[in-house]
Design a protein around this nucleic acid. Structure first.
Lengths: 325, 325
DNA sequence: TTGAAAGCGTTACCAT
DNA sequence: ATGGTAACGCTTTCAA
């Protein structure tokens, strides 16, 4: 029994006689043999792995996205290799280098803004690349997301239509995706003749419940609290709800609060949080499906951009503006 | 200039003359050369990677844990390879096999209960193994966590001392860590002469806000709602708060609610959630530090068990039991 | 400081 | 159905 026979028995048990297969199986379990994937990759030039880059593991939205990717990739016998770029373009470039070094067969990456070197690496790797969560005017390969700026416009217009004139925008560190929403906010404010700059409050920190609290403190410090607050996500919105209550302000009586993403707790806050529902799961599933298709039929042309949409979900935390005393 | 010189220039730039280094650098960037890590691993028998297995990416507690692991491992020039076992012992075994196939230099794994085959694989791999989040009577290598059962006892006793006699235990799918907390609950109930079984309500689903709502519905369906609910985690507790309010029950007037983990939103719920604070970050950091130490000085004996502790955090959602009408 | 040769453990290719 | 041989792209070892 030679090495190559064992190799075959492991990959395609049917191509080996039952007798040999048995003795191989027993040998493997008694010896505790585990095939060396590095050697396999080197010899076969196939890694059976797909690189997945996310800015953080801390945010549920990426957890749901990753879950979906796993569920599609694993049955296709592709191992997702998840790397965390920690919201840094440089770390992202390193991550891309690492993944390409592993000879991943495709890369699924959150965002469309990369360092020039990172973009070049992705372009010259000649593997399927899917950029997600934001729309690119000039995608490297495929692109899945939704119109974040339009979502920002819709959300802001919704508050304007409720009669609000002073609408705060609460956000932590402004990454690509936050900046699109902010663009939408600014545009909607401008078109309504409202100040698009004055009520933007930001701190260079990760968006979180605690940051929502801090941002409301900051808003209050600056003077009157706007009659509506558009928060960059539901976590910030939850913190805002809490801080407003602590200051004796009612929601939506005194201040309307709007979140983003419709996380699972959004319906359970007090009052229930109005928000914009986004499709994280679908984004990941679609990205993974397109990856699998691209790997299975290389060269075939298909749609580059997929829109997974969004939906405004009005709940109890937003209401009509009322005249200030 | 030969291949080996390039190899050296890449790993130890100092060992190569400045002139050569320059021409190598330009060649690399014009060609878009990315070294093949599979070949490197095969030749050097070092993978510079550490396997990390978590049951899910969906839960923030593992996100914080992973974050800590990344922060310790990356500066030590070790790449974490994160694999998701999806709460399945079989998937965990596959994950272990995959990681060992990658020749990871160590494995950090959540939990202490594995399939016999998985345990054997870990034992015979002869690499550092750290089991986390639960205490093992018989750890494979190192073990980091806290006394989950004692935390369950303390939490239950706290509710008993508030005068509660009927204390519900709300939990989804019962994994190893949930089961320890449940053991603690049962023990504390028994020692107080209370029924340790009747008020346990469970459904075989992932713990989530939505599940908390469903579990309270189930509790109500069975008859009187207990005067206190010990929830397996803060998400379930948040759902419980919501469902109780929907049923017209006040917290803590009618029902006290206790969570677990002290997630970032716990202080911001209405009323603020009493809970048990756990150290996810420290768990991950310690696990990674011990891994690095074990890799740097193999053979040296050190402490096997590290306790990262926990702390009861009483807030507004728990209060004294009052006589039922 | 640089290089030649051997070898890491698997798989592709061709042969039997 | 099974095996021999070369090759994958690096690093180790030894030499210059």
């Amino acid at each position: 029994m030679s090495a190559i026979t064992v190799s075959r028995a492991l990959r395609n048990p049917d191509t080996v006689s039952a007798k040999l297969r048995n003795s191989i199986d027993t040998a493997i379990s008694t010896l505790g043999y585990v095939p060396n994937l590095a050697a396999s990759r080197l010899a076969s030039a196939r890694s059976h792995s797909v690189g997945v880059i996310v800015p953080t593991l801390y945010n549920v939205i990426f957890a749901e996205y990753l879950q979906a990717i796993h569920e599609v990739l694993l049955p296709a016998r592709l191992q997702p290799l998840v790397v965390n770029s920690r919201y840094s373009a440089e770390a992202e470039e390193v991550a891309i280098r690492t993944l390409l070094g592993q000879r991943v067969e495709a890369i699924i990456i959150v965002g469309t803004e990369h360092t020039p070197a990172a973009r070049r690496l992705l372009e010259t790797a000649h593997i399927p690349v899917v950029e997600t969560f934001a729309r690119s005017a000039n995608p490297i390969g495929m692109n899945i997301g939704f119109k974040l700026d339009q979502a920002g416009i819709d959300a802001t217009r919704y508050l304007i239509e409720l009669g609000h004139k002073e609408i705060g925008f609460l956000v932590g560190a402004i990454d690509e995706r936050a900046s699109h929403r902010l663009d939408g906010y600014r545009l909607a404010m401008k078109e309504a003749g409202l100040d698009p700059v004055r009520h933007v409050v930001t701190m260079p920190e990760l968006n979180s419940v605690g940051l929502g609290v801090a941002l409301v403190e900051e808003v209050a410090k600056r003077g009157t609290v706007p009659s509506a607050l558009f928060c960059i996500d539901d976590n910030v919105a939850l913190g805002a709800l809490h801080a407003l209550r602590s200051r004796g302000l009612t929601v939506p009586g005194d201040v309307s609060v709007l979140g983003f993403h419709d996380l699972d707790f959004a319906a359970c806050t007090v009052p229930a949080l109005s928000t914009v529902a986004t499709n994280r799961y679908k984004t990941g599933a679609l990205a993974a499906e397109m990856t699998v298709k691209a790997l299975n039929s290389p060269g075939s042309k298909r749609r580059k951009w997929h829109d997974v949409g969004y939906r405004l979900v009005p709940r109890a935390s937003t209401g009509p503006a009322r005249a200030r005393v």
